[in-house]
Design a protein around this nucleic acid. Structure first.
Length: 569
RNA sequence: CGGGAUGUAGCGCAGCUUGGUAGCGCGUCUGGUUCGGGACCAGAAGGCCGCAGGUUCGAAUCCUGUCAUCCCGACCA
């Protein structure tokens, strides 16, 4: 490709809307342009990267036994009503109405379509297992699209669905995908980590996320410093740390006057009771029912754990008025003693003795409160958010934390959709059975952003070779000098005929401009044809990720470049 | 949806407080000089001042509404 003909509008300045590095660089380097919030156009360079990622994904899906299809973006409401998700999915679904006033959605995911399809056309156990996938746009009207490609409302996703006759089959399919995903992210040359995950709204039991490690990642990952346990904080299990257990004698409960003191910190400041000797009481509505969650004063509630435990659809913090009406006190004075609603107590509270909490009466607290004696729990469960330093749930190690970008997520769905959509088959005994399903997603466009997030420097992007839009850029220092241009042209054509993807920067620009652009768009190998070296019949070779420049003979360029590209790939 | 901020030329910004008919840098175009890390000189094009309404002799500027974008929180590939 001639740079003079390539559409890659680079920007000198950072567009003000871009906050994180991948968004800034993809805009500046001319890979993407925003059409509207969370919706982007991929320009030639950007789309080349997307296609490379897609191809790696496709190869590995095929290798794992997947079969590629293409399902519709426009999906009829009936399917979603049948699965029960038309109402559950809520505002996140883009909805539209056709001329006959029928409801449709732009597909946010494809369980409904694929399950219906498989149900209609698969009747026998002989046809299972089936692994069906597609790479296609998904539509989710996110509450807050963000960070360019990182969280779009339209994005490119690979989604595979597995259908097996039984749980053992699902285990095999799940394992195949687990392995395939590892191969994919290794081939993409990304630093990533597989973590245990919450299965969220999609449902199901077992689930793993593939996280590309990056400071700007939206997800927090905790991992053990001794064993290989790693999990999304949303999921990370908290155990009781025996070291924390308080051995004191149980004391008499006391009510103290605490005028104007509302927060845990107030009680620390005024009474010197450390936050770990206090208990906080949070009020929530779970599908309309008010409840209290109680945990140690210095801990955070993990709403996902609570929600999963309750099995409710909606969980949100109660408002002050509702709380006042039921408890007779405001937020800062709540406590489990005398609480009139169900109390869910965090596991860790069982290790506490003689702690302080609100008295459910404004401006009063209790001290020396004890679980069991002073109040009863509806249930004692793990509902706190794991933090750095917690004991590992699998060994005696301790948890560390890093941030990551979720680029892949695999789920065991079980019977959730096959039940709702009646996806059945006839087993060997002639009996009708429900198919056991799994689903497996990779955010292709997000992966591109994640790759940039992980591979850049002050000058621009540094593409990993397997997904670089071009392998080599050939830069004649002065395109008007015939000898330089001729050599550059010869090198360029040699690369092309050897199957190497190359750009020749034939633009009548100063060398500095061409170097800046080459760095910005992140082409892995740069061949510079300049006057000094050319006298020796040499050219310069620079790897984007290194600072030094090598001089090599013109006739050796092809073999050198091949060694770099295929050596690293 | 709650909180915060911003909309002025392709990009980055000034002008707004104190109304008087729009400016700077970069980019673009033309000519010339240059030519190994975003050159220089000369000239030029390019603006519904987000949109609508109001106040005023007069609005980018003041008022009201509205739309859009971005950031923080709940959502997710």
């Amino acid at each position: 490709m001639k740079a003079s003909e390539l559409f890659f509008p680079t920007l000198r300045e950072v567009p003000s809307e871009a906050e994180i590095i991948s968004h800034q660089l993809l805009l500046r380097a001319g890979f993407i342009r925003k059409t509207t919030a969370g919706v982007y156009t991929y320009l030639p360079l950007g789309y080349k990267v997307i296609k490379k990622i897609m191809n790696i994904v496709r190869e590995e899906m095929d290798r794992a036994g997947g079969q590629e299809v293409l399902m519709p973006i426009i999906q009829p409401a009936e399917l979603w009503k049948k699965s029960g998700r038309w109402d559950v999915y809520g505002d996140e679904m883009f909805r539209l109405v056709d001329r006959h006033n029928r409801d449709f959605a732009l597909g946010p995911t494809h369980e409904e379509i694929i399950t219906t399809l498989v149900d209609a056309d698969v009747q026998s156990y002989r046809d299972l297992p089936l692994l069906i996938y597609q790479i296609q746009n998904k539509y989710r009207d996110e509450i807050r699209p963000r960070f360019g490609l990182m969280r779009g409302r339209e994005f490119i996703m690979k989604d595979l669905y597995s259908f097996d006759p039984d749980d053992e089959g699902l285990d095999i399919s799940y394992h195949k995908m687990y392995e395939a995903y590892n191969r994919i992210f290794q081939r993409l040359s990304l630093q990533y980590r597989v973590v245990e995950a919450d299965s969220g709204a999609i449902g199901g039991n077992e689930s793993h996320e593939f996280m590309v490690l990056a400071e700007n990642g939206e997800a927090e990952i905790v991992y053990c410093d001794t064993c290989d346990y790693a999990a999304n904080v949303e999921k990370a299990v908290c155990t009781i740390d025996d070291q924390e257990s308080v051995q004191d004698d149980i004391l008499q409960i006391e009510k103290i006057h605490t005028p104007g003191q509302r927060t845990i910190q107030d009680i620390v400041d005024v009474f010197g009771i450390p936050s770990r000797r206090q208990v906080k009481t949070l009020m929530y509505f779970a599908d309309g029912e008010l409840l209290a969650a109680v945990l140690r004063g210095d801990r955070e509630l993990n709403e996902i754990k609570l929600k999963n435990y309750l099995g409710c659809n909606q969980l949100f913090m109660a408002d002050q008025e509702s709380v006042m009406a039921v408890c007779g006190a405001g937020f800062g004075s709540l406590g489990p003693v005398g609480m009139k609603v169900k109390i869910y107590v965090d596991l860790e509270v069982t290790q506490m003795k003689n702690f302080a909490c609100g008295a459910n009466e404004n401006d009063y607290h209790y001290t020396n409160v004890n679980l069991g004696r002073d109040f009863a729990a509806e249930k004692i469960i793990d509902i706190r958010t794991a933090v750095v330093g917690d004991e590992c749930p699998h060994c005696s190690g301790h948890l560390q934390s890093v941030r990551g970008i979720e680029v892949g997520h695999i789920f065991k769905l079980g019977l959730k959709y096959s039940q709702a959509l009646e996806a059945k088959f006839i087993d060997q005994k002639g009996k009708e059975q429900l198919m056991v399903m799994g689903c497996y997603g990779i955010g292709v466009s997000r992966t591109m952003a994640a790759a940039v997030e992980q591979n850049s420097d002050a000058n621009g992007i540094i593409w990993p070779i397997p997904i670089a839009p071009y392998h080599v850029i050939v830069v004649p220092v002065n395109a008007k000098k015939e000898d330089q241009m001729n050599t550059a042209q010869a090198v360029y054509e040699g690369l092309l005929s050897n199957g190497i993807e190359a750009i020749i920067d034939d633009r009548d620009e100063r060398a500095g401009v061409k170097f800046k652009d080459a760095d910005l768009i992140g082409i892995p190998v740069r061949i510079t044809v300049g006057p000094k070296a050319l006298e020796q019949n040499q050219v310069e070779l620079k790897k984007r990720w290194e600072n030094n420049i090598e001089l090599i003979a013109v006739e050796k360029v092809i073999s050198e470049v091949k060694a770099i590209i295929y050596g690293r790939e």
